[in-house]
Amino acid sequence: MALNIIVLIKQIVDIDLLKVNPSTGSPEVQNLPLRLENLSKNAVEEAVRIKEKNGGKIYAICFGTEKSSSAMKEAFAMGVDEGFVITGYQGNDPARTSMVLAEKIRAIPHDIVLLGNQSAESYTGLLPGKISRILGERLLSNAIKIEIVNGRARATMAMESETVTAETQLPAVISVTQEINEPRLPPVMQILQAGRKPMNVSATGIKEVTPNKIISNIAPKSERRKIVFEDIEKGIPEVAKAIREASR
């Protein structure tokens, strides 16, 4: 059964390269490279695997900025067929993001909406529940495995104290965990072809929703001593001494 799959992809600054200003503790986000968010990659990978098994078409939606076509191209290279970039993202505001994404999802006939369970930089984890409720579609969440069985979606979900396998009719919203798969490194041919896939760009009319006021956003101070030994023969006695003191 050929499926129409929508993947929600977020673009983030490369948090692994993020430095903080040593005197103020403020994050220096300007000029950082942008990339596809980690869990969005897992969601894309899963979409591609579902398509490989069942056939169909994969759409990706990114609520981002004018710069988000690069994230979309990363998703194209992994196997997404058509992309929608919605501009106007102004920062973490899950209420607004979910409304913007839901509006676009409604406009695309679909069987499955895939997204990450918690994004790597803001990790609010609110989007799966919100999107499911706004669309009125059923949610299978925190999936570590997804199968399509007799036209229904079946997912194994990782919960606190148990693993639950459940099933539902389509269309359905499914959130994935980091453990579900290892996102592929796109083959060169697909990277080259990524530029030729259809990308639709539009601006959102939906305004800010969440009136959360940020008082401060700074790195907690690290007061670590950073005594690093490259010569381990010298280091081991020192470190052993510190360990002995701590374990007394």
Binding site: S98, Y123, G125, L126, G129, K130, R133, L139, S175, N212
Partner: peptide
């Protein structure tokens, strides 16, 4: 987290995550 997302839509309330 899933419940928080759903509840916020059902009750129309803002969330701090």
């Amino acid at each position: 987290r899933d419940v928080a997302g759903m509840l916020s839509v059902d009750l129309g309330l803002n969330v701090a995550a």
